[in-house]
Amino acid sequence: MVDKTRVIDLVNRDPNGLNSHLGTLLFNDVIGEPDGTHSIDFIFKLSNTCFECWKGLCYKLLTFYCGCCIAIEWGCEFAYIAFAHIWLITPCFKCCEINCGVFQRIYTTCINCCCTPCYESFGGIFHHFKR
Rank of each mutant, 00 (worst) to 15 (best):
D14C: 02
G17Y: 01
G17Q: 01
L18K: 04
N19S: 01
S20C: 01
H21K: 02
L22H: 02
T24S: 08
T24A: 09
T24G: 03
F27P: 02
N28Q: 04
I31V: 08
G32E: 06
G32R: 10
G32Y: 04
E33V: 04
P34H: 03
D35W: 01
D35I: 01
G36C: 02
G36M: 00
G36R: 03
T37W: 06
I43S: 06
I43Y: 10
F44Q: 08
K45I: 06
K45P: 01
L46F: 10
L46S: 09
S47D: 03
S47H: 09
N48Y: 03
N48V: 03
C50S: 03
F51K: 00
F51C: 02
E52G: 00
W54F: 08
C58Y: 06
C58K: 06
C58S: 09
L61C: 09
L62Q: 13
T63E: 15
T63G: 04
Y65H: 15
Y65G: 12
C66S: 15
A71H: 14
E73A: 13
E73S: 13
C76K: 15
C76S: 12
F78T: 13
A79H: 07
A79G: 15
I81R: 10
A82H: 12
F83H: 10
F83K: 07
F83V: 05
A84Y: 11
A84L: 12
A84S: 15
H85L: 11
I86N: 13
W87F: 12
L88P: 05
I89D: 09
I89F: 13
T90Y: 15
C92H: 12
C92L: 15
C92D: 08
F93I: 08
C95G: 12
E97S: 12
I98Q: 11
I98N: 07
C100W: 05
G101F: 00
V102M: 06
F103S: 11
R105Q: 11
I106F: 09
I106M: 04
Y107W: 06
Y107R: 12
T108K: 14
T108R: 12
T109A: 15
C110H: 02
C110L: 14
C110P: 01
I111D: 07
I111T: 07
C113W: 08
C113L: 14
C114P: 02
C115D: 06
C115W: 04
T116H: 06
P117R: 03
C118F: 07
C118D: 00
Y119Q: 12
Y119E: 07
E120D: 11
F122D: 01
G123A: 03
G124H: 06
G124K: 07
I125K: 07
I125F: 08
